[in-house]
Structure formats: structure tokens, C-alpha cells
Amino acid sequence: MPNESKREVLTQALQKRIRTFTRIEKAFYGAIVITAIFMAISIIYLQSRNMQVQQEIIRLNSDISGAQTDLNDAKQEVNELSRYERIAKIAKDAGLSIQNDNIQNVELE
């Protein structure tokens, strides 16, 4: 019995204390809860924005890779078109003679 009365007194004291938060305590705890909610929403927003930026970076890198491939293909085509044998064949077919002094090498950057 004495344990039950102590427990009952303790329970009543806790209930009384919980019911009688001052306005400052309520404002403090409310501010903590609002801050926690705001931070959770901010973290979710920042993570989603980070994912969007990463996807944009991946897309841009893909575009750059495609452009680099196109550039390499163009360089290869220029090299193939400017080969000496090809130029000599075209000149011969057109009835022209080749003068080695007039041939220049094209350098691609």
C-alpha cells in the first residue's frame, strides 16, 4: 500500500507539473518543435534540389561526350579527306598534275 500511495502522489505531481507549463515554457517547446519541422522540410528540399542538380550535371556530361564524339568523327573525316593518296587520285581523275610544293598539311587542334 505505501508504494501505491507514493506512486499515486508521484503521478499526481507529474500530471500537475505537465498541466501547468508556463507560457514561456510553452513558447520555448513550441519554438523547438517548429524549428525541427522547418529543418526537416529544409533538408528534404535541399536533398531533392541536390538530386536535380546532379541529374542536370549528368545530362550535361552526356551532351559534352556526344559533342566530343562528333568532334573526333569530324577530325577523322578531315584526315581521311586530306590524305595524299585521295588528293592524288582526285587530281588524276580531273586531269591535273600534282606539285608536291603546293600541298600543305592541315593540323587540327
Results as ranks from 00 to 15, higher is better:
85 E>S: 12
91 A>C: 00
92 K>S: 15
100 N>V: 12
9 V>G: 03
24 I>G: 04
38 F>S: 11
48 S>A: 13
29 Y>Q: 02
47 Q>G: 11
6 K>L: 06
36 A>S: 13
107 E>I: 15
85 E>A: 05
14 L>H: 04
54 Q>H: 12
16 K>C: 07
25 E>P: 01
5 S>D: 03
53 V>D: 14
96 L>S: 09
12 Q>K: 11
82 S>Y: 08
35 T>M: 06
76 Q>Y: 10
104 Q>S: 15
73 D>Y: 02
19 R>Q: 08
82 S>Q: 09
2 P>V: 09
54 Q>D: 15
50 N>H: 01
27 A>W: 10
102 N>E: 09
87 I>N: 01
105 N>R: 13
84 Y>V: 10
42 S>Y: 04
104 Q>K: 15
23 R>G: 15
33 V>K: 03
5 S>Y: 00
28 F>Q: 14
52 Q>R: 14
57 I>A: 00
107 E>A: 15
59 R>T: 15
61 N>Q: 14
73 D>C: 02
103 I>W: 05
39 M>D: 12
65 S>F: 04
67 A>L: 09
48 S>T: 13
21 F>Q: 11
71 L>K: 09
72 N>G: 02
11 T>R: 01
56 E>P: 00
65 S>W: 10
8 E>C: 06
80 E>F: 04
56 E>R: 06
62 S>M: 06
